[in-house]
């Protein structure tokens, strides 16, 4: 299992960053789901060792979506910064890093997952669809609607997508 340990040691930081965005900026939750996903990979390593990163990202995306589903069933307080006002208008020319996370936290989970996989992890539409077990058309529509929603939340002047 040396190569699994190497994978965990080498890629945990990058995967944690993905998990953090998927969890809408909740670092504890990001560490929890990452640890859970990696622990689950231990027993499956022989089967998935040829493409562990793709497996991990797909599992993280699904774990984050499930987490949100569980949260939505409970009458739970929103995340501490989810309702914080975002960019202060066109006069604000610089987007502070946290505002992206705050905006992501306000998106529906599947929409957020699609944006993170597409724009942070640079997955193609096809790879994103494969990771989430949905069609490319769904990825396209979620991407389009997600970007539009982010624009509403953050202000078109301060965020571009290219």
């Amino acid at each position: 299992m040396q190569d699994f340990e190497d994978f965990v040691a080498l890629r945990s930081q990058a995967l944690l960053r993905t998990a953090y965005l998927l969890c809408g900026g909740d670092k504890s939750a990001a560490e929890d789901i990452l640890q859970d996903v990696l622990m689950g990979m231990y027993g499956k390593w022989r089967r998935i060792r040829t493409s562990p990163e793709a497996y991990a990202r797909a599992a993280l995306a699904n774990a984050a979506a499930n987490r949100w589903r569980r949260r939505s069933r409970k009458p739970e307080a929103p995340m501490e910064h989810a309702e914080t006002p975002l960019a202060g208008g066109h006069e604000q020319q610089v987007v502070d890093a946290d505002s992206v996370v705050r905006a992501l936290a306000q998106l529906p989970s599947r929409m957020r997952v699609v944006l993170v996989l597409r724009y942070f992890d640079d997955l193609t539409e096809a790879d994103t669809a494969r990771a989430l077990g949905c069609g490319v058309g769904t990825v396209k529509s979620q991407t389009s609607r997600g970007l539009a929603r982010l624009r509403e939340l953050m202000g078109e002047q301060v965020l571009t997508w290219s």
């Binding site: 953090y20 965005l21 610089v94 987007v95 890093a97 982010l150 571009t160 290219s162």
Partner: peptide, 12 residues
């Protein structure tokens, strides 16, 4: 700022 850059900055 681009979305990817913003995400990278948020997680740097």
């Amino acid at each position: 700022m681009e979305l990817k850059s913003a995400m990278e900055a948020a997680t740097a």
